[in-house]
């Protein structure tokens, strides 16, 4: 690339320098790890022992999966440390909207088109 200063709003000229250095601490990684272990253990214990079934089980499963996703985003991927403007966050939200559209849309459209 040509020598070019990446432009962004409200960002001081040297703001980018500290970005990598500030990524996480041992404490945040350990908390994240423990949380993800717990969030994996919960569905295993609850669902495989049939403590909940049917729709409730699905809610527990998907709920813990989403929570674990959030844990990874904040404790491992350091999403909240992004400087403004938060293009990465915007891109992620956009991507998730499209993923939800693909999954939910396909299920909806294919409901009456299933071969069985």
């Amino acid at each position: 690339m040509a020598e070019q200063h990446p432009q962004s709003h409200g960002r001081d000229a040297h703001g980018g320098h500290d970005e990598h250095e500030s990524h996480g601490s041992l404490k945040s990684y350990v908390i994240g790890f423990v949380l993800s272990l717990v969030l994996t253990a919960i569905p295993l214990i609850v669902v495989l022992n049939d403590m909940v079934t049917g729709t409730a089980a699905n809610v527990v499963l998907l709920g813990t999966a989403v929570l674990q996703f959030v844990v990874q985003l904040f404790f491992f991927m350091h999403l909240k440390e992004e400087k403004k403007p938060r293009f990465n966050l915007l891109a992620l939200i956009l991507g998730l909207v499209i993923v939800m559209t693909i999954v939910a849309g396909s299920i909806w459209i294919m409901t009456y088109n299933s071969v069985g």
Partner: peptide, 12 residues
């Protein structure tokens, strides 16, 4: 298999 799934996906 379901050919209609392809039609759904390709138009997405």
């Amino acid at each position: 298999g379901n050919p209609m799934m392809y039609i759904n996906l390709i138009w997405m």
